[in-house]
């Protein structure tokens, strides 16, 4: 008591010693917190449970799976299904697992992402900063393209690729992915570059930088967030693509998703649930890793690109 009295301001009446001061105390188990965290936990469990089942199943042997306890952790943990899924599972005549599809997907995704982002960023930059004649018409047409269901264009593209001699090749698929990424990416980049102050662009022109000079020396270094967004959108989109992969390539060139489908849906022999689970997780790993690595940048970029129309 005497200690308290010493620390309290001299003018304050004694009754004020216990009066409110400093940060307001909060109760950990308030009603609000219970509802908030309760909801969050329930939703998190709801979404994580399937993943949990998948991981557990992929670590069990087939005899254990047949017991039917899908939630039980493995009694005898084995990584054999993972090895089989990666290197031995059969699709058609090939029995080298998902690894073939993985490398095909890499060879499709990397050039598609690089090409589409390189072109779309220059498009967006030109549309935002260099108002050339017909820019508005060009932009309208491009955006219109984003609203046409792409199923409509599948067959015409087959014909075009055939005429170009690129049907069933990886480069053909790269071209298709690059083109289909164009509307949304251009919109994204245009909006981002529009949000960069115009005076910066004017200053660079007075300083004697040209079209490419301004793009490389001024705009690019300021655009890391939006490039991150574009990379994530494209990598996940192209990696997860199934339709274009199955239509425009042949079995040797199938991307990972198509191969996964063929493994999981194969009708011969026993259904190897553990291998299927492992294969599915392996296929989803790339987009997952990208999200976790760049999550914060992604949110920042989305916000930056979306503000101005």
């Amino acid at each position: 008591m005497s200690d308290l009295a010493v620390n309290a301001p001299a003018v304050a009446p004694e009754t004020d010693v216990a009066a409110p001061r400093g940060p307001r105390p909060t109760r950990a188990l308030s009603r609000r917190n219970i509802i908030l965290y309760g909801t969050l936990i329930v939703v998190a469990v709801y979404y994580l449970l399937p993943l949990y089942v998948m991981i557990m199943t992929s670590l069990k042997g087939m005899p254990e799976i047949r017991l039917g306890n899908i939630f039980a952790p493995p009694l005898e943990m084995t990584f054999e299904p993972w090895v089989r899924a990666w290197a031995e599972a059969c699709t058609g005549l090939n029995c080298d697992g998902l690894s073939r599809g993985f490398w095909n997907s890499v060879r499709i995704t990397i050039p598609s992402v690089v090409v589409s982002i390189a072109i779309a960023s220059v498009n967006g930059y030109a549309l935002a900063n260099w108002r050339f004649k017909g820019a508005d018409a060009f932009f309208t047409i491009l955006i219109f393209g984003a609203f046409i269901p792409y199923q409509v264009m599948i067959y015409p593209i087959v014909i075009i690729l055939r005429e170009m001699g690129l049907y069933t090749t990886l480069s053909g698929l790269v071209i298709v992915h690059s083109i289909f990424g164009m509307p949304i990416l251009t919109l994204l980049f245009r909006n981002y570059f529009t949000s960069i102050p115009e005076e910066l662009f004017k200053a660079a022109r007075v300083d004697g930088a040209g079209f490419w000079g301004i793009y490389f020396k001024i705009m690019l270094p300021m655009s890391l967030p939006i490039f991150t967004v574009a990379v994530i959108l494209q990598v996940t989109g192209i990696w997860n693509d199934f339709l274009f992969g199955v239509i425009y390539t042949k079995p040797d060139n199938y991307p990972m998703t198509v191969q996964l489908n063929n493994i999981v849906n194969s009708v011969q022999g026993v259904k190897e649930y553990n291998v299927n689970m492992a294969a599915t997780i392996l296929t989803g790993l790339v987009p997952l890793v990208i999200y976790f690595v760049s999550g914060k940048l992604f949110v920042r970029g989305i916000a930056a690109g979306a503000v101005k129309g």
């Binding site: 102050p197 005076e199 910066l200 004017k202 200053a203 660079a204 022109r205 007075v206 300083d207 004697g208 020396k217 001024i218 270094p221 300021m222």
Partner: peptide, 18 residues
Amino acid sequence: PKDRGIGMVFQSYALYPQ
């Protein structure tokens, strides 16, 4: 602009941030 022999100062400074 670069060939006009001018220097320009803007309201928002317009300095290259990087």
